[in-house]
Design a protein around this nucleic acid. Structure first.
Lengths: 209, 209
DNA sequence: GGTACCTGGTTGCATTTTTAACCCGGTAAC
DNA sequence: GTTACCGGGTTAAAAATGCAACCAGGTACC
C-alpha cells in the first residue's frame, strides 16, 4: 500500500516552503531595519544591538544572516554579485561579451536601476551618499568589486587579456554610475539625466572594443 | 574582575524577552486566523491545514499551541480560566467572596467584556453564535466550565458548601451572560441593554447570599 | 470489499533561533 | 593604571520550528 504518500494540504512541487519564505523575510527585515537606521543616524551611531532590536531578532541571528556590520549595508550590492559574469555566460549566441554587457547596462539605465547611479529616489540617493562617505563601507565595497572582477574574468576566458578586459569593463561601469550619481546629487532628475547617461555609456562601451 | 557581567544593550530586569514576545504573537496569530476563518466559512468547513497555512506555521506547531481544533476557538474563554478563583483569592480584606465576584461581574458589564454577553461588536456576536451552534464547541466549553468551577470551589474553601456555592455562582454568571447575549442577538444595542443587565446581575447576586 | 483520499492529531529528526555567556580592542573615569 | 563600560563578533546549550512521515477514523468511488 505504501502509506503516507502525501500530507500537508498543498500541491506537490510548490512554493519555496515555509522555512525558506520566513528566512527571506527575516533577511529583508534585518536589511531594511539596518539601512533605515543608518540613513537616519549615520553608520557609526547605530550599533548592531540597535539593529537586532529593531528587526526583533537576537544578535547571533543577525550575524548568521550578515557576516559583518558593513554587509548590512552592502548586501544591496552583494545581491548583484556575479551579475556581469552571468550576463556574459548567458548571452545569446552571436553576441560579443562587451556588447552583451553594454546592452545590460543600457537596460539598467532604462529602468533606473540604482546600480547605474541613475535613480533619483531620495532614499537611493541618501543610500549612495552613506556608502561613499563612510570609509569602512567604501573599503569593503572594493572587496566585492574585486570578487566580481574575477568572476567576470573567468567568464571571459583565461589569461591576462580576459583579466584586463574584465577590469576595464567594471571600471567603466563604476565611472558611469558615479557620474550619473553626481549629476543627480547636484539636483537634476533621473529623467533629465537619462539621455546623456545613455550617450556616455555608448561612447564608453564603444571605446572598449 | 568577574568578567562578562552584562551584554545585550537593554536594561537589567526588563520586558518579557524576545522568545516570550514572539511566542505570544504566534499564538495570537494562530488564534486570530482560526477565528476569522471559522466565522467566514463555519467550524467544519475549515481544516487545521487551512489555519496553519493562514497563520504561516506548520501543523505540528499549531498543535503545540492548541491541543485540539476546538481549543482554537475556545482559547478566548480559556484565557479567562480560573478568573473567578483569582477574584476570590485576591479580594480586598473585609469583602465577602460573593460580593467580590459581583463587583467583578459588574465591572465586566461596564466595560462590555464579551464574557458578560454584553458586547454588540458584530464579530463578538458572530463568535458567540459560532460557539453555541456548533455542538463539539459547546461540548468542550462545558469542560472548561467544570475546571473553572473546581478552581473556584478550592478558592472558596473545602467541603460541599464551597462546591455548591461555586456551582451556583458560575451558573448564575452563565445565565446572565446568555440572557444579555440573547437580547443583543435580537438586535438591541449594548448601551440599551446595559441598565437591565445591571439590575439582573444585582438581583441574582443578592439572592446568592 | 478494496482503494484512494481527507481530517484531526502525533512523532523523529534536522534546522533555526534565543539566551547568556564570552573575547578583544578602544576609551573614558578617577 | 586599573576599573568599568561599550562596540563588533563568537560560542554552546536549550528552546522552538519545519519537515516528512505516520496513525486512526471517515467517506466516497467502483
Amino acid at each position: 500500500m505504501q502509506p503516507g504518500t502525501e500530507c500537508y494540504g498543498g500541491r506537490v512541487s510548490e512554493s519555496p516552503g515555509l522555512r525558506a519564505r520566513k528566512k527571506e523575510r527575516t533577511r529583508d527585515a534585518i536589511g531594511d531595519a539596518a539601512v533605515s537606521l543608518f540613513l537616519e543616524h549615520g553608520f557609526d551611531h547605530v550599533s548592531v544591538n540597535d539593529i537586532a532590536a529593531a528587526a526583533e531578532i537576537s544578535k547571533p541571528t543577525l550575524f548568521r544572516y550578515f557576516p559583518t556590520k558593513e554587509d548590512l549595508v552592502l548586501h544591496r550590492f552583494a545581491d548583484h554579485q556575479g551579475e556581469a559574469a552571468r550576463v556574459v555566460r548567458d548571452r545569446t549566441a552571436g553576441v560579443g561579451p562587451v556588447a552583451a554587457l553594454h546592452r545590460h547596462f543600457r537596460a539598467g539605465l532604462d529602468r533606473r536601476d540604482p546600480v547605474t547611479g541613475l535613480s533619483d529616489h531620495p532614499e537611493v540617493v541618501a543610500f549612495h551618499r552613506l556608502v561613499f562617505t563612510t570609509p569602512s563601507l567604501a573599503g569593503r565595497l572594493m572587496r566585492y568589486q574585486i570578487e566580481d572582477e574575477e568572476a567576470l574574468a573567468d567568464a571571459l576566458g583565461e589569461g591576462v587579456r580576459a583579466r584586463l578586459l574584465a577590469a576595464q569593463v567594471l571600471a567603466v561601469q563604476r565611472v558611469l554610475a558615479r557620474s550619473n550619481w553626481q549629476k543627480i546629487a547636484d539636483g537634476r532628475t533621473a529623467h533629465d539625466v537619462h539621455p546623456e547617461a545613455v550617450t556616455d555609456a555608448d561612447q564608453a562601451f564603444d571605446r572598449l572594443r
